[in-house]
Amino acid sequence: MATIETFWPGLRRQPHESARAHMASRVPRAETGDSAAVVLDDLRGRHFDCAEAVFVTDRDGRLEGIVHISDLLAARPDQAMAELMEPEHTAVHPDQDQEAVALAALRLGLVAVPVVDHAGLLLGAVPPQALALILRREHDEDLQRLAGISRDGDDIARGALEAPLGDRLKRRLPWLVIGLLASSLATLVVARFEHTLNANVAVAFFVPALVYIAGAIGTQAVSVAVRGLGARRMAMGPLLLRELATGSLIGLALGSIVVLPVWWIFDDGLLALAVALAVLGAGTVSAVIGLALPWGFQRLGFDPALGSGPICTILQDVLSLLIYFTVVTLLLL
């Protein structure tokens, strides 16, 4: 029987957020040779903490498969559980991190995730209510980590919302100070191309849109990278090539969309081409940065999401402006 570690061996383990903390031990059980009628009769009049599925075991109590309640109700009375169960399944161990539980549920579409010991004996299951809570907590954690808010304490949301003022400043301010100082680079880039702006004032109209597009593409890449790096370990080369292709295609699509409206409104074909090429270049660079930055944090021994959002924004702004003004200068001057 495969466990979640078979698919995601790099998942972190934190006992205080383990599968055991969410496990319900009173779950419907049956053996492979039991008939549907016998199992249904055994379930009547009993209370379970998780009753969305029947967990099928061998005579020694080792998990063999899962039968959804809907399938059990639709089965013939004499049909054996071995015929009804889904033999391909996954399970988690009690000490595995709650994120492993959520990933198992999402990957296989499970309504409840079985929990087994290292011998494969069924201990219980994580019910759907707990799965929803886990997914919400993991989502909140990812959002805060993307914002550069480091983890502090067991409850991520409480640490962010109820922490003392000094603690909040300590966690958030350093990354934002770095962003403030580094934002001067964007100012220097604009100042460096002052002559380009003076030659064609329309060039300045597209700066906010370009910076936004670059930031949005980069934020998407960071989100994918943070979740992906936390779930599995993969070679960086193929990932970079894939993200390079994705960013290029996104930039090409967006550039193709803007070229005709810009040409029609400003009656300037070269300006329209410059904007389109800048969107293409900014999209490509932003996507690669969004993936590479969390990976770089991980290689340096830091949380791969810590500060990725603020730092990524700085790099995207500066590089997108540099690309834009360079292309405009080459085509228009």
Rank of each mutant, 00 (worst) to 15 (best):
T3K: 04
H22F: 11
M23K: 07
S25H: 10
S25K: 13
E31V: 13
R44N: 05
A51L: 04
A53P: 15
V54K: 11
F55H: 08
V56Y: 06
D58H: 12
E64G: 00
V67T: 10
S70Q: 13
A75Y: 06
R76G: 11
Q79W: 02
A80T: 13
M81S: 02
E88V: 13
A91S: 14
H93G: 07
P94R: 10
D95F: 07
Q98R: 11
A102W: 06
L103T: 07
L103K: 12
H118P: 01
L121S: 11
P128A: 07
L133S: 09
L146S: 03
S150Y: 14
R172M: 02
L176K: 01
V177R: 01
L180F: 14
S184C: 13
V189E: 06
F193V: 12
H195I: 06
N200M: 12
N200G: 00
A202M: 03
V203P: 03
F206D: 02
A209D: 04
Q220S: 10
Q220G: 14
G230T: 10
M234W: 09
A235F: 06
L240N: 04
E243M: 03
A245P: 00
A245L: 12
S248F: 14
G251Q: 10
L252D: 13
L252M: 13
A253H: 04
S256Q: 00
V258M: 02
V259L: 07
P261F: 04
P261N: 02
W263K: 10
D267I: 02
L273F: 00
A276H: 05
L277P: 03
L280F: 15
V285D: 04
V285E: 08
S286H: 06
L291V: 13
A292G: 06
F297C: 10
R299V: 15
D303A: 12
D303W: 11
P304M: 02
T313V: 01
I314F: 12
L315G: 03
V318W: 08
L319K: 07
L321M: 10
I323T: 12
L332F: 09
